[in-house]
Nucleic acid binder design. Structure first.
Lengths: 123, 123
DNA sequence: AATATATTTAAGCATTTGCTTAAATACGTA
DNA sequence: TACGTATTTAAGCAAATGCTTAAATATATT
């Protein structure tokens, strides 16, 4: 839509603005990946699922439904989102599917988990 | 809704599940705060706004609209969300409002910004 | 006071999200 | 093969999200 400059302020530093635009252009792919991860983690239920998988190493949808006091289909649909983003993998044992974090892909979550626990301590 | 145990698997470790529930209960407030921060950051536009404020220290809505090639009201509404979450503050200079990060409140964003730049380097 | 700029706010609307319920699929066991 | 359990998938729907346009507010300038 808007491709022209809207700021007419004397103070507006057009060179600065242009540099910002260029910086973002070069990082577009990185932003998309990070936005994807954060939008996954930015839900109460999904953040708890991720935290629990970090804590327990692996859990099945049924366990998660019990712990989070939610229906199994609701959990399953959250899991699908998380899995589609490449954050978790599954292992089958009989009828049960165990999900676990792909720890290589998701180092940022370690900082997030630490930060959650810091909030707890300082609150 | 569901308060009963749904897992009837022999392997289900009910003590483990109960411990998880208790852990989450004790961290409820921390999860809510972190979910709020991540849901704010989990939007392409808002993550870029935060990144730019980190980079440039302060910017006005008009600058952000130019850099992100979006309308001023759209930017303003994102800013309101970020501000309501306590992540940024404003300073007025004449007609212009300059927004900046409340750096004490948002240490997790430093990890996120670093992680974005790591994606860029390793991709 | 009148006008212009910067910003916010509100209304409207299309899209997305996240549940529910019901049905389908996968596996194990009698 | 028939039945039970674990899980996924699909349809439906209410609520949330994020833009657009238009109007309101705040400040500066003439």
């Amino acid at each position: 839509m808007k491709l022209e400059i809207t700021c007419t302020r004397a103070e507006a530093n057009h060179k600065q603005l242009h540099n910002c635009m260029e910086t973002l252009d070069n990082m577009e792919e990185s932003f998309q990946k990070m936005t994807k991860l954060l939008s996954i983690a930015g839900s109460d239920v999904r953040l708890k699922i991720l935290y629990l998988l970090n804590l327990e190493n692996e859990l099945c949808p049924c366990d998660l439904a019990d712990i989070l006091k939610m229906s199994v289909p609701a959990i399953s649909q959250h899991i699908r989102k998380i899995k589609d983003a490449g954050i978790i993998s599954s292992r089958r044992d009989g009828q049960t599917l165990y999900y676990s974090l792909n720890r290589d892909e998701t180092e940022i979550f370690n900082s997030i988990f630490e930060s959650i626990e810091l909030i707890r301590k300082t609150a």
